[in-house]
Design a protein around this nucleic acid. Structure first.
Lengths: 137, 137
DNA sequence: ATATAATTGCAAGGCATTTGCAAATAGAAA
DNA sequence: TTTCTATTTGCAAATGCCTTGCAATTATAT
């Protein structure tokens, strides 16, 4: 069940299994899109967690590589679980300029970029598309 | 000369030609990289401009399409003039995780992305690379 | 049962960006 | 030139996301 998966994820990343963090991971497991701290807070039913703790947990999860953070255009950070096995930054993101929602385009590959001078060391890349989502178009 | 070019840019976009805005455009014309409000403030020699006015001018310039804004990973917005004729969003950006500098990769093309469901309307795309710049690597 | 390092909550702080509003000013019109 | 008006500007205050400090709690290894 989901509870068990959350526990396993936390364990594997060497985190303590607390009610808050389990609930947080669970929420992200079931989320269809990257969530902001506010969205997380309001969706955390049952186990409530102080928003500072949410930020701190998310920060730890990102550092551990089990979550990735998307920087939108509204100065709000959104977080999503990395899919098992992927590095989590390998898919593009879509931001709807109408409803503000952010989506992970999981099935779509970030295209290779050509011509970066060899003095540059590229560690991460982020492809962000903006426009109207299926619902808003 | 540069002064004249700034004037022309402002005129063409239907803005009044004020000392502040001329200086601002000039600064951006000579900038080698996208600049934050703070950087702009400190580099605006001679003609000083209140930082609120800088924000408001930049906002107007972005709306008019003569400037583009890059969202970094530090919650700070950086602005760069659109090169004449281009739409300004057609090049990738590079963010150095060591020195924090943002660069426009002017000569490099944003690769085409494949497989976006046709319900999505894409209006803008942003390709951001992170790593070490030539100086820091 | 105990020890200890990780986690949490609360209050306060930091800081980029916005807003409201009144004063100044560029540029068109008279 | 003078007048008029919409745009631009500055100042003060507000917003709002995210951080920090610190003491209290708690998961887990011993």
């Amino acid at each position: 069940m989901a509870e068990e998966l959350a526990r396993k994820l936390l364990k594997k990343a060497n985190f303590k299994v607390t009610p808050g963090r389990s609930a947080l991971i669970n929420l992200l497991l079931n989320a269809e899109e990257p969530l902001s701290q506010q969205e997380i807070s309001s969706k955390l039913t049952g186990t409530k967690m102080n928003y500072v703790s949410i930020y701190r947990s998310l920060e730890a999860f990102v550092a551990a590589g089990i979550v990735h953070r998307i920087e939108g255009c509204d100065r709000i950070w959104r977080f999503a679980l990395n899919s098992e096995g992927k590095d989590g930054h390998s898919h593009p993101h879509f931001i709807c300029t109408s409803c503000g929602r952010t989506e992970c385009l999981e099935g779509i590959e970030v295209p290779k970029i050509e011509g970066i001078p060899k003095e540059y060391v590229i560690n991460e890349q982020e492809f962000i598309l903006k426009g109207l989502c299926a619902r808003c178009s």
